[in-house]
């Protein structure tokens, strides 16, 4: 059977190194299979976070050949077998061990987003076209690859000022909900720091669920922020017409 050389990061918060492992490749293997083989035959202490192996739980996020990807969704036949395959942990989050990172930052950001708030006495009937937009965002599996590739978090470490694309799409799914009456625009601007996003679309490029994060969530939210804070003529028109 053909062998492929893997360079897998081994280490913890104090440091680490890439370690070479040779893996026997069979048809249909994904990178996560290769990590299992390493665990079973060479390094039983290799730390990996995984769960469904079906690209639906969002657990096995890593950086494969430098690209934020799901290990269970990256087939080996899509990679060049003549070169070593590097597998490293997500860089935007603190490392715990080997390929496992501490993603608790995300859950802290999530708690700051005001939850769904319907009008008192809401009629719960909704038309499909009213919830189409929010349903796209509900596909998110919280793999946090978008957070990992976002340069605002990854390179500029603005974790205190910027919530990241995952939480902007959650905010968008609530803001666009036809029955929600909560006003999140000030917190989207101030706490989630939407102005830090310069729409370079890396989040959209890596999303395994192919959610149009930038075009359908972040930019519409930016436009709602413009409505509120940067469009004096629109504001005047709304005052005189009484429209939203």
């Amino acid at each position: 059977m053909p062998e492929v050389n893997f360079k897998v990061f081994r280490g913890n918060s104090e440091g680490g190194e890439e370690v070479d492992y040779k893996v026997e490749v069979t048809e249909g293997m994904v990178v996560l299979d290769a990590m299992f083989q390493i665990q079973q035959t060479k390094a039983p202490d290799l730390a990996i976070r995984w769960n469904c192996k079906a690209a639906k739980c969002g657990s096995c996020s890593a950086e494969i050949n430098g690209k934020p990807s799901l290990m269970c969704k990256t087939r080996l036949d899509t990679l060049d077998p003549s070169k070593p395959v590097t597998v490293r942990p997500m860089r935007a989050f603190p490392i715990i061990k080997d390929l496992v990172t501490d993603v608790s930052f995300n859950y802290r950001v999530n708690k700051t987003i005001p939850p769904f708030k319907p009008k008192p006495g809401t009629d719960w009937k909704m038309l499909q076209e009213d919830v189409d937009r929010a349903q796209e965002f509900r596909k998110c599996i919280e793999c946090f690859l978008c957070q990992d590739t976002c340069h605002v978090l990854r390179d500029h470490a603005k974790h205190e000022q910027f919530g990241g694309p995952r939480w902007l799409i959650r905010a968008a799914s609530l803001e666009m909900h036809p029955l929600d009456v909560e006003d999140r625009i000030p917190m989207i601007r101030e706490k989630l720091g939407i102005g830090f996003c310069n729409i370079t679309k890396c989040c959209t490029e890596v999303c395994p669920e192919e959610i149009h994060i930038t075009d359908n969530a972040i930019i519409p939210l930016k436009e709602r922020v413009v409505d509120r804070y940067y469009d004096p003529i629109g504001k005047l028109i709304r005052i005189f017409t009484g429209n939203k």
Partner: peptide, 9 residues
């Protein structure tokens, strides 16, 4: 040791 930082930055 790997060439990339392990933490954001």
């Amino acid at each position: 040791p790997g060439t990339q930082p392990l933490t954001p930055g």
